[in-house]
């Protein structure tokens, strides 16, 4: 298990490094000079030149890259162009809001999707199964920003059950959760559909397995067979799917944070791009990449914990 974790760590470092190369290349080829954008149209060529050399933009490209790479490893993602604050501080200030949003979205999708998938599989072919099937496809098909706007109109404007914008008072957990409910539902609801369908399919496959017949032949109750013997196996593809889906959720978070006027990484990146605040863009994207890699590694470790066959094959 330890060796496996180390392997995953090595793989993670490689993925992050590749992401950094691409990120760096992308910013390098974007037209427009960050120094002149930062200083505005009235800047003199001398001022632009001075800022360029302060930002290191006059150095050869490979020196620029290695500077970027090694300072990032040390946790130095540069300073914000306008305020001069370290980028890492700016990103970490916003990160908890996005993490909460994604955790909320995962909670919605897992807490609704897994039971719905199990019920559909157990009642295969029945009315309940059909209703769950249609609803699943419907929520997958509707884009999350449409759901965001409609849930805002229904629950916040018409019914006034939940607040429309913001992230809640700092330090007040109840208020923060209330503010989290709608945006996380908007991101998670499509995943409820994905997970319900995925769990249903793998559950049906697992219930056909001969060890399930053995369990029945030993007189175990249907409840125990479904939720302990079959679900333990049927859940595995869903864990992998969620690990990969986190990346997708981060991009949905951009919409949700704008629609619900919430602070967070998505909103930060969106605003930084519109003013070409490149250090913030690279910093935020890099932190998100690291987050994605860590979550995927955790998903794989979780699968190892759930499936002893995987554990053995790794040792």
């Amino acid at each position: 298990m330890l060796r496996y974790a180390l392997k995953r760590l090595g793989l993670g470092i490689i993925i992050v490094s590749v992401a950094m190369v691409m990120l760096f290349a992308m910013i390098y080829v974007i037209p427009g000079d960050p120094a002149s954008v930062a200083l505005g149209p009235r800047a003199t060529p001398e001022m632009i030149q001075a800022l360029r050399s302060r930002m290191g933009l006059d150095q050869p490209i490979w020196i620029q890259f290695f500077r970027f790479y090694f300072s990032a490893l040390r946790g130095d993602l540069g300073t914000e162009v306008l305020s001069g604050r370290p980028v890492l501080d700016v990103v970490f200030e916003q990160l908890p809001y996005t993490l909460a949003l994604i955790a909320g979205a995962i909670s919605w999708s897992v807490l609704l999707g897994i039971p719905l998938g199990c019920i559909a599989a157990v009642r295969r072919g029945g009315f309940v199964d059909r209703v769950i099937g249609i609803l699943s496809v419907a929520v997958i098909a509707v884009p999350s920003f449409v759901i965001a706007i409609y849930s805002l109109l229904i629950f916040a404007v018409a019914l006034q059950w939940l607040p429309a914008i913001g992230a809640g008072e700092p330090g007040n957990l109840a208020s923060q959760l209330k503010h989290l409910a709608l945006p996380s539902l908007a991101i998670g609801v499509g995943w409820v559909g994905y997970i319900a369908r995925m769990v249903r399919a793998s559950m049906l496959e697992t219930l056909e397995a001969s060890h399930i017949r053995t369990a029945r032949a030993f007189g175990l109750t249907d409840r125990r067979i479904t939720y302990s013997y079959a679900l333990r196996i049927a859940i595995l593809p869903t864990v992998t799917l969620l690990g990969v889906g986190i990346g997708n959720m981060v991009s949905s978070a951009v919409f949700a944070e704008i629609v619900f006027a919430r602070p967070g990484i998505g909103k930060l990146v969106y605003e930084a791009i519109s003013v070409r605040n490149y250090p913030v863009v690279t910093g935020a994207v890099l932190v998100t990449t690291v987050f994605f890699v860590v979550v995927n590694a955790l998903a794989d470790i979780l699968i190892g914990a759930l499936d002893p066959r995987v554990r053995t094959s790794l040792n």
């Binding site: 060890h211 032949a217 007189g219 302990s228 499936d307 066959r309």
Partner: peptide, 23 residues
């Protein structure tokens, strides 16, 4: 269910698949 596994027990053909792999 009260009889199965208690009074009537079964051994199946395929030993590879007859036991739950994750328990």
């Amino acid at each position: 269910r009260a009889l199965r596994g208690q009074r009537i027990a079964t051994v199946f053909q395929d030993p590879m698949g007859a036991l739950n792999p994750v328990l």
